[in-house]
Write a protein that binds this DNA or RNA. Structure first.
Lengths: 172, 172
DNA sequence: CTAAGTGTTCGGAACATTCCGAACAAACTA
DNA sequence: TAGTTTGTTCGGAATGTTCCGAACACTTAG
């Protein structure tokens, strides 16, 4: 423990379960804890010991899922990469679309199931529950943002609870 | 479209993205839309065309994740399987543990990262946000249950909105 | 006690995915 | 424009996963 290498590897595992590739997860680990703000592809290749082709697809993956953005510093020859402004908000929003997808799956089931009442009730329950979650989850995000800025306005700790009040609202 | 076979296959894909195996996902599709309440392993094997060994591990997977439960009807020789009482609630709760896991990952990062302020702020943000979600998500489930039973008490449509009021609260 | 039936475990085959190195395309410099 | 650097794409090797069939426990009926 207490080893950065292990953290990067753990991040690889964790983000892999989210549907990314292993190396993409390791890149996330590097961007989160190890490297500074501005990294380039060759640096990440050397850091993780992977070919630049693998790094290319991994970075594309991260870019398309909105977790990482690419930018070109003025007068620079190569692209640089950094975490998106609101990485975790995007990750949560991805979860939300997952909920919507399951609601759609239930809808598809309702289209093909006959009139057996038990199955219909089951699928309607599934559809409504996932739709409810897809609808309410963004509001949870809003609440998080609200409490966060609220804690920033009163950094004396006068708000009630939650660990999120302990820090200023640094826009990571 | 409008084909049960396609729905079962879609369910296989969708639940596969949740970490289950493909056949386990197909079994979920069958239990959701196709088969009746009580199915046995040989029936599912014939229905999906898989070996009974694969079905055994798939059903174990579903049982350990709490989506399916096994029971033995009185005087029956073989086990039967059905969806858990609160399948989707359990699925959501699994998501919640995923949030907690990511909070723990951030904590691990805080243990190994030095005192670079940017990285610390990033990881603290990550930890607090995921902890917030892990904490608040169950309350969303509670709200769902509350509105659902509320809609059941007043099935005249006097509650405001949401598709969940359209059905009686059949405990699937 | 014997035999039939049910469920699990294991080794190997089939399958899909990931990754690397090399070839390719594109952009910038001189 | 020629040459260099950066980034992407592609075929093949390697890795990991899933599935099947067979062998193995365990239970129950007769």
């Amino acid at each position: 423990m207490a080893d950065i290498e292990e953290f990067v590897e753990s991040a690889g595992l964790y983000f892999e379960r989210l549907g990314l590739s292993r190396t993409a997860g390791r890149v996330m680990g590097c961007l989160l804890a190890d490297t500074g703000e501005a990294v380039d592809a060759p640096g990440l290749c050397a850091r993780l010991g992977v070919a630049k082709s693998s790094m290319s697809v991994a970075l594309h993956q991260l870019e398309r899922s909105g977790l990482v953005e690419r930018y070109r510093p003025p007068r620079a020859r190569r692209d640089h990469y950094r975490l998106t402004e609101d990485v975790f908000g995007r990750a949560f929003r991805a979860k939300m679309t997952e909920f919507a997808a399951f609601a759609a799956l239930a809808e598809q089931g309702l289209d093909v199931v006959g009139d057996r009442p038990a199955a219909r009730a089951r699928l309607e329950h599934m559809r409504d529950m996932y739709a409810f979650m897809a609808r309410e989850f963004p509001r949870l995000l809003d609440r998080w943002d609200a409490e966060r800025t609220d804690a920033a306005r009163r950094p004396d700790g006068s708000d009630t609870d939650g660990p999120h009040r302990l820090r200023p609202p640094t826009r990571l």
